[in-house]
Design a protein around this nucleic acid. Structure first.
Length: 883
RNA sequence: GGGCACUUAGCUCAGUUGGUUAGAGCGUUGCGCUCACAUCGCAGAGGUCAGUGGUUCAAGUCCACUAGUGCCCACCA
């Protein structure tokens, strides 16, 4: 006899159980030729990361997959690790140093990087500990870090290979520059946001005349770098400008007039100021017409020496100052409100400055080609499928990837420059510092100061973590991985690039399925973020409701790929469910006689004549099991979770356990309760790992599994022969009968404790047999003193209901209000007649009977026949009432 | 400018390949005898599926358009 607390207390069990799992090495996987591999690589969280609901959702899904596959006999590897998150981490450490009054520049590069490593030692695994709180069954001993030795080696290897192949190049182009982080960003790292800006109209004088051209710009400060004015050749307004020269206001620089189709005559005045160093379109024009490229800004967004008197001003200050000066000179025409999209740094949200700058790039088109094919051919599938198009659209319009960053934390670019040689000759790509320049022999070689984009290491994650470029047994066995589970935000950053890298360096796709789950939002639909203060902290929820509750709730309310709107109250769902399971198990264990359980189940079932309820619950279990398997395989986790919930709570607890209470001492009940509970725990385990383990450990078990863990038990074996649709239907009728008696009792305010008589009137032999066979059950569940079954007339003053082809009467002498009963029955009759009308018109329609499949027609005929009987009965019942 | 998603009960959402009476959780109403559970039980009320048109024997489910909401992408300065 086991004594257990009335309520499940997750805090008491979770850490203990997790430690046990970890200690026993249950999370580890190793190449095993006897087993099939199943592998997932975790989307490596940033070392600066703190567990948020997005992580909770993402990692719960992965854990469900891994635990499910592990139980199904796969060698299931969940590769964990963290990302060094270049800019993000550098920012965090810089802020920390700033609090102590230290600037990174004062510290110097080497010392600063040391500081970051120290920070990482101290805080970098916070997120890992939090993932453990979530119950994640990652193969922790293999944990990797994008800056560890092996992965850094992979990064250098890749850089070298791509450089040799001509797919990495250096050049001066317009890139997105973050003046706060003071580094280049890739196109993906510059996120467009609508901004309420202004469009300023400025007069550019025509040299040697009183005329002028009005141009419109949103960034007047960039005029300091203007070298031309461009108009559309079709634009009649500016035909007369041909051959003339304009003067740049303030600086009095001479500007050419260019005629190019790129200019949209409809925008502004149709005249475009050309600033090749600060705008992508202008840059293109600049290269096309060999214009000078004047960079007017420093890295921090202040105006540089090319900006004349404005030197040293911040870009926005300079904007104001220039407008003032233009107004003074009478060259300012007007300004108007102008809403437009402007790039912002994805890390610090500072407005990005397009800026000409020498950077390293990866040529993407050749890499994209096979990656497009891999998805088009179906070798990689997206779930939900709609992301396929998003992926393909991006890939088909892919642009080169700016990979150099002007920060210190990251993989240093493995390129050395000879101080003496100019240009190409003096460039050496090498993992180690070359002793001398291969061209001139000089020993003065200097490494490129830049580091690589963080994603330049993450895109190698599915194979670098398994030891690539070495051909390790792990790499051979676990690559390609199976499922990638991630959020939509990083399809371009990460998913697409991993596919390209996998194909390029491994010659094979890195995974088969990509499951894109939704974004976690608050109840107003806003994305949860720390800065908005609308976060629900998963760790708080774990403390309050338990990990299983958190996991189950978030899974069950998140439909495939849909965003989820979260509020704290949603976690009650999971907590209540956990408590329900706890108490059902407690009840079963209190009544379990272990000696009854040492039976061979198959032999037992063969030899035993099971009751309808017993056959029914087994059938329902195996039906549910099959459905859950199917849903997990299709990434429909909410449907799987809800099926388990419905089965356990509403079928097993509400009906079967209640039914079993009268027979609980008997062997058959003992075995069924135990078996269904034990198997259900295994079915539920991937979703709620802790409570299932805790209960399973307390359950009496066959000797050979004693002491082991539920997480290494096999997934319940599907036994189709246990599924019987007939039994499920029959039990459904019994349940309907009980429910309708209860309904009538409630409608007529029969005291719950009052035991009354009921009469079933049936002419249907099947019903008679069914209800007779279950009469004890029905009597108990409906609290009946007596149940008469057969051909009976309706007693006077009785309530009535129709169940299938039979009636049930409750003689209620003196308790019935005839008018009320008539109304109650009348409402039901109306519903039936409404349905009947629909059926009749369909069945009478030749189009329907000739075109619909026979099966559908048959079903409707059957239904109509039954409904006809029901309506007849209902009318009789009503006339009785009237009489 | 392009693309995607969403609009189903008071609230938050499910709804497989179109096929009988559209589901859940929460909330709500009534009743709670019962020795697993009030983080509970039993019973009930409550939607015609944003709108319009179409395809079909049959549409919440497919198509088109409209309206609203949200998101992503995009070099009109």
């Amino acid at each position: 006899m086991v004594e257990l607390p009335k309520a499940y207390n997750p805090r008491e069990v979770e850490d203990r159980i997790y430690q046990d799992w970890e200690k026993n090495g249950y999370f580890s996987a190793r190449p095993d030729p006897a087993k099939k591999p199943y592998s997932i690589v975790i989307p490596p969280p940033n070392i600066t990361g703190i567990l948020h609901m997005g992580h909770a959702l993402n990692n719960t899904i992965q854990d469900i997959l891994i635990r499910f596959k592990r139980m199904r006999g796969f060698e299931a590897e969940w590769m964990p690790g963290t990302d060094h998150a270049g800019i993000a981490t550098q920012n965090v450490v810089e802020r920390r140093l700033a609090k102590e009054g230290v600037k990174r520049q004062e510290l110097g590069r080497e010392k600063f990087v040391e500081e970051v490593w120290k920070w990482r030692e101290e805080y970098g695994s916070t997120i890992i500990r939090q993932l453990k709180k979530l119950g994640c069954s990652c193969d922790w001993p293999r944990t990797r870090f994008t800056m560890d030795e092996g992965l850094s080696g992979a990064v250098l290897e890749v850089f070298e290979r791509l450089y040799k192949k001509g797919l990495i190049y250096k050049g001066s182009y317009i890139i997105n520059w973050c003046p706060r982080c003071q580094t280049a960003l890739s196109d993906e790292e510059s996120q467009h946001r609508d901004v309420e800006g202004m469009l300023y109209y400025i007069k550019y004088p025509v040299k040697g005349s009183d005329e002028h051209v009005i141009i419109a710009t949103t960034r007047p400060e960039t005029m300091l770098g203007d070298v031309a004015v461009a108009v559309n050749p079709q634009d009649k307004r500016y035909k007369a400008l041909k051959g003339k020269t304009l003067l740049l206001p303030i600086l009095d620089r001479e500007l050419k007039v260019i005629y190019d189709r790129l200019v949209d005559a409809k925008f502004g005045t149709g005249a475009l100021k050309v600033t090749p160093a600060h705008d992508p379109v202008d840059f293109e024009l600049g290269r096309k017409y060999a214009l000078e490229e004047i960079n007017v800004m420093n890295g921090d967004g202040t105006i540089n020496a090319s900006g004349g008197d404005y030197e040293g001003m911040d870009r926005f200050e300079a904007r104001e100052a220039i407008i003032e000066d233009l107004k003074e000179r009478g060259l300012f025409v007007k300004s108007e409100a102008h809403r437009h999209a402007v790039g912002h740094c994805y890390r610090c949200h500072t407005m990005v400055e397009p800026r000409l700058s020498p950077q390293w790039f990866v040529k993407m088109a050749p890499l994209a080609k096979p990656a497009i094919e891999a998805v088009k051919s179906g070798k990689i599938k997206f779930y939900p499928a709609r992301w396929t198009k998003v992926y393909l659209d991006w890939m088909e319009n892919i642009r080169d990837w700016c990979i150099s960053r002007q920060i210190w934390w990251g993989h240093r670019i493995p390129v050395y420059y000879c101080k003496k040689c100019q240009g190409e000759k003096g460039i050496v790509v090498s993992r180690v510092k070359p002793e001398k320049c291969p061209s001139c022999g000089s020993a003065e070689m200097e490494q490129d100061p830049d580091v690589l984009d963080t994603w330049f290491s993450s895109w190698l994650w599915p194979f670098s973590t398994f030891g690539w470029p070495k051909e390790t047994p792990e790499l051979k066995y676990f690559y390609p991985t199976d499922s990638l589970v991630t959020a939509q935000e990083i399809i371009f950053f990460w998913v697409a690039r991993m596919i390209m890298a996998g194909l390029e360096f491994m010659g094979d796709t890195p995974f088969k399925d990509v499951y894109i789950h939704g974004t976690v939002r608050d109840m107003t639909g806003t994305k949860m973020s720390k800065s908005l203060g609308n976060v629900i902290d998963p760790l708080d929820m774990i403390a309050k409701y338990g990990t299983d509750a958190l996991r189950f709730s978030i899974i069950s309310i998140t439909a495939q790929g849909q965003d989820v709107y979260l509020s704290e109250s949603k976690f009650e769902l999971g907590r209540n469910f956990a408590n329900k399971i706890w108490n059902a198990s407690r009840f079963i264990m209190m009544n379990l006689k272990p000696e009854e359980l040492s039976v061979d189940l198959c032999a037992f079932f063969k030899g035993m004549k099971l009751t309808l309820a017993e056959r029914w619950i087994l059938s329902r279990f195996y039906t549910t099991l099959g459905y859950v398997e199917e849903c997990i395989c299709k990434y429909k986790f909410n449907e799987a979770a809800n099926a388990v919930y419905e089965f356990l709570w509403h079928e097993f607890c509400d009906w079967y356990i209640e039914i079993s209470k009268s027979t609980i001492g008997e062997k058959s009940s003992q075995v069924i309760l135990y078996k269904v509970l034990e198997k259900s725990l295994r079915m539920l385990h991937p979703f709620m790992p802790f409570i299932t383990e805790e209960i399973w450990q307390k359950l009496p078990r066959p000797k050979d599994t004693a002491g082991e863990s539920i997480m290494v038990q096999p997934w319940p074996h599907a036994q189709k022969e246990m599924i019987s649709k007939d039994d499920e239907e029959d039990m459904g009728r019994v349940i309907a009968l009980v429910a309708s008696v209860r309904n009538m009792r409630a409608a007529w305010n029969i005291e719950p404790r009052a035991e009354i008589r009921a009469i079933i009137n049936t002419h249907d032999p099947k019903d008679e047999k069914l209800f007779s066979g279950s009469s004890e059950l029905i009597k108990r569940l409906a609290r009946l003193l007596d149940l008469a079954i057969g051909r009976h007339a309706k007693p006077k003053s009785s309530a009535a209901a129709v169940i299938g082809r039979s009636d049930v009467y409750l003689p209620l002498e003196g308790l019935i209000d005839f008018e009320k009963e008539k109304a109650r029955l009348g409402k039901e009759l109306m519903r039936m007649e409404g349905e009947m009308k629909g059926l009749r018109s369909r069945l009478g329609d030749k189009n329907f009977t000739s075109k619909a499949p026979a099966e559908v027609i048959g079903k409707q005929r059957e239904r109509a026949a039954e409904l006809e009987i029901q309506i007849k009965k209902m009318k009789e019942n009503m006339s009785e009432v009237a009489g």
